[in-house]
Design a protein around this nucleic acid. Sequence first.
DNA 1: AAGCTGACTATGG
DNA 2: GCCATAGCCAGCT
Length: 108
Amino acid sequence: MSDFFEKVYDVVKQIPPGRVTTYGAIAKYLGTTGSARMVGWAMNAAGSHSEFVPAHRVVNRNGLLTGKHHFDTPNAMKELLEAEGFEFEEDQIINFKERFWDPAKELA
DNA sequence: AAGCTGACTATGG
DNA sequence: GCCATAGCCAGCT
């Protein structure tokens, strides 16, 4: 497994409960800015990871649950987030800006 | 081996 | 403000 995946998992696992981040933010933190797709791909492979990865806390830049279909059920992602106190308008996180957690800034 | 695809983002019309 | 285009890079067919 490449280090890239490990790093992605490491960051995602450090996302505080009740907070979310974006693919782009993680990509930037890893120095692979512009390759946000790879972060998404890493999430796709997260299921293969031995430890649990809170992939539901990673959304696109709009706070939209674009990856919901990659969970066991289409509602799993939304329900997990709702359980953490998130509010939604359709599949978009309300107050996303306030919930946003930037690894490059918060984690550093 | 070559081309397509994708859990993204930024930019331009 | 919404639609189209273009970089991005690794895995899959």
